[in-house]
Design a protein around this nucleic acid. Sequence first.
RNA 1: CGGAGUGUAGCUCAGUCUGGCUAGAGCGCCUGGUUUGGGACCAGGAAGUCGGGGGUUCGAAUCCCUCCACUCCGACCA
Length: 564
Amino acid sequence: MKVSNFFFNTLREAPSDAALKSHIYLLRGGFIKQSSTGIYSIMPIGLRVLRKIEDIIRTEMNEVGGLEMDLPLVQTAELWSESGRYQIIGEELLRFKDRTGHPMVLAMTHEEAVTDLVRSVLSSYKQLPFMLYQFKIKYRDEARARGGLIRVREFIMKDAYSFHSTQEDLDQYYQRVYDAYVRIFRRVGIEPVVVQSDTGIMGGKVAHEFMLDTPNGEDYLILCNHCGLQANREIATFARKPYQGKDLPLEKVATPSKQSIEEVSTFLGIPAEATAKCVFFDVDGKLVTALVPGHLEISEVKLRNLLKAKLLVPADDALIRKSGMIPGYGSPIGCTQTRVIIDEALASAKDVVVGANEEGFHYAHCVPARDFTPGYEVADLAQADSGCGCPSCGKDLTSTRGIELGNIFKLGTKFSESMGAKFLDESSKQQPAIMGCYGIGVGRLMASVIEQSHDDWGPIWPKSIAPFQVLVVSLAKDEPVMQAADKLYKDLQDAGVDVLYDDRPERAGVKFKDADLWGIPCRISVGAKGLAEGKVEWKLRKQKDFELISLQEIVDKTLGWITE
RNA sequence: CGGAGUGUAGCUCAGUCUGGCUAGAGCGCCUGGUUUGGGACCAGGAAGUCGGGGGUUCGAAUCCCUCCACUCCGACCA
């Protein structure tokens, strides 16, 4: 491809609404154009990167026996009612009516569609197992798209679905996909952090997320640097260090207008760990009171999973007071009208400060096991944080942020059961297929590679997914230089190299700046000086300096570099 | 959905507070010339419903009302 024939633009300055490096360089290099919030057009050079990422994923999916197919983007509401998700999922699912007034949705994921497809074909265990996958537009009506391609509304996802006759078969296959995922991310230049994750509205029990470790990530990860345990903070378990004070009788203390943990602990001169944080939730219209040690946060995901709640939101004052609790001074002591759940750490804590359920008063020296009457439940409720104990080795955990690149779920029979994707087993018994599902956001992956690989001048693509592997630049308009550059371009093309040729009559500086913004990993410059000695300049994007290579050797050197 | 902010040329922005000539600059783009190794220079040129609507006023990019779009933080997130 010649640049003079290419449709592109590069920006000297970054648009002011881009904050992340990946967003800035995708815009400046002309890879993408924003159409509206979270919706982007992909320019030719950007599509070349996306396609190369897709090819890598496709190869690895085929490697584990995947079969590529294509499912509809527009689906009927009935399909989503069958699984129950039409009712459960909120506004993120875009609903609309077709011309006949029939309720429809834009698919945000394809479990329903694939299960519908499979149930129409599946009848016997002899057909199992198999895995179907696709690269498909998803639409999610995100409350807040952000960060360029990191979080968008419309995006291409590789989604894959496997079907099995036994749990063992799924377990085994799940591990194969896990390994394939690690290979995929390594091939695009990312060493993923794999964490245990919540299964959310997908149902199922086991799930992993493949994350890019970066301060710009929107997920929080809990890691143990000693034993290697890794989990999403939403579900990370940890070893408690319950506060152990003195054995003293409960004592009511005045804490006038001190409501927050910080205010109370400062006022009483005690550490935050020596308090109990009392948080109220509205769970399907009923008040649930949850308590964690004062220095920790509640994990709403843990609570939601525990309660199997559909809707869990912070309770408003009216609901709290109606149930006999006082906001800011709440505690389970003497409370009878709400369900009380306390974190494991509090169950064995001693001498903590809790609310007195009375405006302006707290209780000191509380021993929950002794004083929380009439009753309570104990659960893993608190969100792990750096400094908490590792649940397997006991050492301190650390916290970091990450971008979720892909995930894998053991779905089980959630969809096959509710939608009737069943088969006859060896003993002629009807069984629901056991499913797994596996996703990767392609555009997000492209952006993540830049997040991890760039310098002050632009992205640095690994050659596996670069828009072109090699860029040939002519540095002068005079005939000998142009002819030599033309010939080199043709020679490289003939040798099968994926090459872009900057044949524009621009100054060298302009071409070099564009080359950096395109991030093409190898640049070969043809100039008058070098040509006088029969040489051209060879420079890798990630290196500072170039070396002179003779025209006779340059094609072989390039081929050698490509197959390195 | 809460909080904060921004909307003037393709991009970056000035002008708005304190209303007043024909709405500006740099970059980019077009024409001609001069240049030619890290975003050159000179001359000329095209390009704007000042986000939309309504209002106040002799007069609105500027003041008021309202709607919209976009960004960031938070909530939410298969």
